[in-house]
Design a binder for these strands. Sequence first.
DNA 1: CTAGGGTTAG
Length: 683
Amino acid sequence: MTERQRLAKLLRDCSKYSLLNRGLQTHVTTVKMGLGLDLIINNSLVDMYGKCNRLDMASLVFDKMPERNVISWTTLMGGYLCQGNAKATLSLFCQMGSSEVKPNDFTFSTSLKACGFIGIAENGMQIHVLCIKTGFEWNLVVANSIIDMYSKCGKIVESTRMFDIMPTRNLISWNSMIAGYTNARQSSKSLHLFKRMQEHGEIPDEFTYSSVLKSCAGLGAVQEGRQIHASLITRGFPILIQTIMASALVELYIKCRWLPEARKLFDRIEDKNVISWTAIIAGYAQEGKLQETIDLFRQFRKTGIQLDGFVLSSMMGVLADFALVEQGKQIHSYMVKVPYGLDISAANSVVDMYIKCGLTVEAEKCFNEILARNVVSWTVMISGYGKHGYGKDAIRLFEEMQLENIKPDEVSYLAVLSACSHAGLIEEGNKYFSTLCKDQSITPKVEHYACMVDLLGRAGHLKEAKDLIENMPLEPSVGIWQTLLSACRVHRDLEFGREVGEILLRLDGDNPVNYVMMSNIYAEAGEWGECQKVREAMKEKGLKKEAGCSWIDIDKEVHFFYGGDDTHPLIERIHEVLKVMERRIKEETGYAHGVKFALHDVEEESKEESLRVHSEKLAIGLALVHGGLDRGVVSVFKNLRVCGDCHEFFKGLSKVLKRVFVVRDANRFHRFEDGECSCGDYW
DNA sequence: CTAGGGTTAG
């Protein structure tokens, strides 16, 4: 073996195991040996630096090369892609196009993967056409890349077409197609193809099972999932060694809401990689387990494994749900610094985070900076406007999206309908609902009907709303009846409320929420006897209302409060300031505590009057004590819906103090300004 | 000396 061959092999190993220091040493040696201009050595150097995430060095070597072949170009493209910088990969592909060098099969598969990463079908289609023209379309690897590219761009029909007409297939072709169906949420097609591939004599591997298990989870086919798991064990599949398999199982258990099982499996994975970490972090995030998610993220960072857009968007999701704006901003500022940071999912998660933290202007800014907005980007912004009560803006965006040739999907319709109902835009809501019903590619779900029930209910058309529920082609959910029930409460229609309440208790008699709603309706109507009966029924069943919890971020510290909470060190001053404010509000606006809303929450009934302060009020009280008013808008967050009494109090407070208060509850944002609320007192 | 399938966001 010559010295040159030895050094090339050494560099190959450095690439494979990401050994940067060893690679740097070898780089020096090659120069000393007079191989600084050697094509193969330089290609290996580009690859090594690329795999070690030193794209600065990789492009330095590349730029200084006296001659470059197709491998030089492809290697550098792959380096950028590895780092998540798919745009750089494609721009290199274009630059290469204007040079002498012609692309080969490796070049095409790399650039197709980059297109899939970005998710824009137009780019991918152009490259597909180039593959046809240059005769690479039926190269097996290239064809597989095309299948995957289309499915990543949401063009599952194109993937299928490619798969059906390709002359030869291998395991990866089948796996790509199965994964395509799985990700397109066409679980039955995915399982069907799984069967077909075995009939063709193809042996599934861990990638196959990963998709198939996910489809089982998607169908809620827990039994089948368990069966596959069991058959894997009896077949001696080395599950716990195979990270991929273990990650798939972790995911399956998470989807089936078996978090503890998932955790057990995760802990036993020997070689955890970024994908297994993402799976478990996303699992805890989606279950709303804030502390565990943050702890896991910290542990993950300690491993030194490179972050990517996937794990960052998962993290952002949980921070958004808890409205932890300071931590969200921290991750955002990290994202803008790294090239992979703002790929489309991550960028969308940033917009959503700002929306959920009440910073609409920031959200708009980030939304406008996204160059290639997809349907999720638009939907986040539309539903964001909806949550904040900006119905007209939501509608404007919904129309604009379609002008940009992005077709709304079921979630987009949900966003615009709920924006209409929140803003009381009855006519517009009706219009969009009928467009939705005419759209052949979308089947309206219960949630869409629930928006319409809310819309009709707001207008006081309770009978129409009930007819809609009873005549819709779907099984009514608990939630849709609850929507109708709260409309009955707002319109003080006791008889109708009683009727709906009975249906609800028959349907979902173990849910404390229903009892609380009914008892509130009776209490507001002054029917204390009935009210008492409902509460006793609830008590007999041993049901407890979910504890109300609010929190506020003051100087980057999050303070949590429960209803009647007296554990905060400043609690006495909080009560004091609240009392002063109540007096001022009464004097200046005539509002009196508890007169308009004589609601008695079941949980709090037995407590002393002085402790019957809701968590959202305590949180606002803390802001007042802290002089939080100097910083403009005061934002408070609550896990349940804000109560009517607190709502009146915040209105008064905004008038008396001439300040804006924002309360985000489980459903929407309430922006209190000059004695009014953005929700128009309907929520 | 270069490439393809498993994770994320509404």
